[in-house]
């Protein structure tokens, strides 16, 4: 096996599988263009071939040299702390990846909750809103349960949850909760500091973007969050 680790094999499999998947998908748009003989698929397929070549080159290199950096490259990635943090955290075993993947799926489950329920029930607009209002606390509860065993996975998932909820519940309701969540996950436990941070950040953002620059932030589309957002915008502007 040379100097190969499981991670190296997974990396190679990932790139080759991605290239294969995208190659198969390219048949969806494999249509000729009269003035251009390579068509719409020529460029992406050439890139995918290069992806496969580079993935195999990387695999062979890892077989020979393991995790060493190649000479001739300027090793910024090795000096920006990301690899070092990964090494020191010990978050490189299979179970951690699986647990993180499960956490990361939760926001996408929320986004598709109405489609999943829609397979069994016919949903109108009100029904979709009701499903989302029920799915949000349930999935957040699951998130909190899973987050206890995977701190970094929780940090990665929270912003995705925030983004998933923005469309329905709006920036004005979700942002303060997001600030509190991130601050807590970063290790801050003093309630007065957390409250002050949330108030300051919201104050600066709302004043600069909503009041001064008239940037329309997401207001949500489910009552009462939508009404609350509009009330806040009216008050500020």
């Amino acid at each position: 096996m040379g100097k190969l680790r499981l991670g190296h094999i997974c990396e190679a499999v990932f790139w080759l599988a991605l290239a294969a998947f995208l190659y198969i998908e390219s048949f969806e748009f494999d249509r000729g263009i009269e003035i251009y003989k390579f068509g719409a698929t020529g460029w992406p397929r050439a890139l995918l071939l290069l992806v496969a070549v580079a993935a195999i080159g990387q695999f062979l290199f890892q077989f020979v040299a393991g995790d060493k950096a190649t000479s001739g490259t300027v090793g910024a990635a090795t000096d920006d702390g990301a690899e070092e943090a990964a090494r020191q955290s010990g978050h490189s075993h299979f179970r951690w990846y699986v647990s993180t993947f499960c956490l990361l799926i939760l926001p996408f489950l929320y986004m598709r909750a109405h489609d999943l329920v829609g397979m069994f029930l016919e949903l109108d607009k009100e029904g979709i809103h009701s499903v989302k209002l029920m799915a949000a606390p349930v999935l957040l509860f699951v998130y909190l349960l899973m987050a206890r065993g995977n701190h970094v996975g929780a940090i990665l998932t929270l912003p995705l949850f925030f983004a998933a909820l923005l469309e329905d519940l709006g920036f004005y309701s979700m942002a303060p909760l997001f600030i509190v969540g991130v601050t807590l996950l970063m290790g801050e436990r003093r309630p007065q500091w957390i409250a002050l941070t949330a108030a300051l950040i919201m104050g600066v953002l709302l004043f600069t973007f909503v009041s001064l620059l008239y940037v329309g932030l997401p207001t949500g589309n489910i009552s009462p969050f939508y009404d609350l957002s509009h009330w806040i915008v009216t008050m500020i502007q």
């Binding site: 790139w15 995208l22 748009f29 263009i33 719409a40 460029w43 992406p44 890139l47 995918l48 290069l50 992806v51 580079a54 993935a55 080159g57 990387q58 290199f61 995790d67 950096a69 190649t70 001739g72 490259t73 300027v74 090793g75 910024a76 990635a77 090795t78 690899e83």
Partner: peptide, 26 residues
């Protein structure tokens, strides 16, 4: 040759960016 741990990862990074740019109209 800049920014990645190995030359291959450098190329894979760039190719990933090029593939993201493919999405949409040709």
């Amino acid at each position: 040759t800049v920014g990645a741990r190995t030359l291959w990862k450098g190329w894979l990074s760039i190719l990933l960016g090029l593939m993201i740019a493919v999405v949409g109209m040709d």
